[in-house]
Amino acid sequence: MSDPRSHHSLIAALGAELAPVRRLRPPWLRTLGWLAVVALIAAGLLLHYGSAPMLQRWRGAPDLAWAGLGAVLTAVAAAWAAFALAVPGRRAALAWLPLPGVLLWLGASGLGCLQGWIAPGDHAVGEHVIPDCLRFIVGFSVPLSVLLVWLLRRAAPLRPVLTAVLVGLASAAASASLLEICHNVDATATDLAVHVLAVGLVVAVNAALGGRLLGGVARKA
């Protein structure tokens, strides 16, 4: 089956099977599609909670706003990188793109912890808040990850695990951004640790499950 003549018969066979195909849309357009869903959820949360508590908190502790911005940037960059990496021939280095967002997100949150500010109207993290944060981030990350994996179904990620890690990071960062709207606590070391735990959990589950779901092309001949 593998001599050069058989290549020509295979080419003829593939030619006979050829049907016109719809090209994959560019990564930025597909990223916008996913972000539109995130924006819809954000709009729903803003309608329910209003923007006043969030803005008041940000005025009291600007590093919370910076952390929120970092989470948004992380979500956008990771989603774009996942869509771009799912196309054969793109650089693996694209996976570093969310790094500045992550640094801003964690850096600003960490700074808030160090300063130990308590923003006006906030209370310290109580025992019930920790599972709430965790539940919120994980709960929103699941549908957002499923949506991203579904949007990636026609792509061909040759690095399925790396792509799945980016899917997890994008979903967790988007969920943390959404949490900012209805979060009622300031950044404390415990709070930050819970966030990091939630993001780590989402990324790890995605890497384990999403990698398999996205690995069709990488595995199959």
């Binding site: 001599d3 058989s6 295979l10 593939l14 054969p88 792509a155 092309v217 001949a221």
Partner: peptide, 20 residues
């Protein structure tokens, strides 16, 4: 090498819509 050629040709066929 020739096996890789065949497998790659088939993969190209399957994912031809991903080419930009």
């Amino acid at each position: 090498v020739e096996d890789v050629v065949q497998e790659t040709l088939i993969t190209m066929h399957r994912v031809r819509h991903t080419y930009d």
